[in-house]
Amino acid sequence: MKQKILPVSGDCTKSKQQKQHIFLEKYKKEPGIVESTVGNSHAHCKYCRPKSDFSVAYAGKYDIERHCSSKTHLDKVATKKSAKSCQGIIKFIPAKLILPEEKAVVRAEAMFSEIIVKMNLPLLTADVISRSSSFHY
């Protein structure tokens, strides 16, 4: 008569496979997070370029929360917000007064003025820097 050979335990004969998460529509609620072109188990962050695709395969929503709370992401979001606030300063200057070739210069001056105000520096700082700059005419 033949003997039946039984496995010691189910864990020894089969390896457990981790369930791989895929990108879900509810992940788009986080600002800047969209689907990735890398694959359906990746997410894309609009703020963190050029390396803005990351995997959500292991923990899904937690992977996105971890990315959005990282220092790099928070710094890039803050930079993006400050650039938008600079656009608010430029709105006060009538568009007719700015020539297209001067628009970049006006934007840079507005950003510099905003930095001076945010850092609570004396307004004479702008004069000192413009006099010491080799770019003035």
Rank of each mutant, 00 (worst) to 15 (best):
V8D: 11
G10D: 08
K14R: 07
Q17N: 12
Q18F: 09
H21G: 00
E25M: 05
E25D: 15
Y27R: 01
G32T: 03
V34K: 09
T37V: 09
V38L: 14
N40V: 09
H42G: 00
H42N: 07
A43Q: 00
A43G: 03
C45P: 03
K46W: 06
Y47V: 00
R49E: 15
K51H: 05
D53G: 02
S55P: 02
V56E: 08
A59V: 10
K61D: 13
I64P: 00
R66G: 02
S69Q: 08
T72V: 11
L74I: 06
V77P: 03
V77C: 05
T79G: 13
K80W: 13
G88P: 02
G88T: 11
I89K: 12
I89F: 15
I93M: 14
A95R: 07
K96V: 05
L99D: 10
L99T: 10
P100E: 05
E101R: 04
K103E: 15
A104I: 02
V105K: 08
V105I: 15
R107C: 08
I115R: 08
V117P: 03
K118S: 10
N120T: 00
L124R: 14
L124N: 10
L124E: 14
T125L: 11
S130A: 14
S133V: 04
H136P: 01
H136Q: 08
H136V: 06
H136C: 08
Y137P: 06
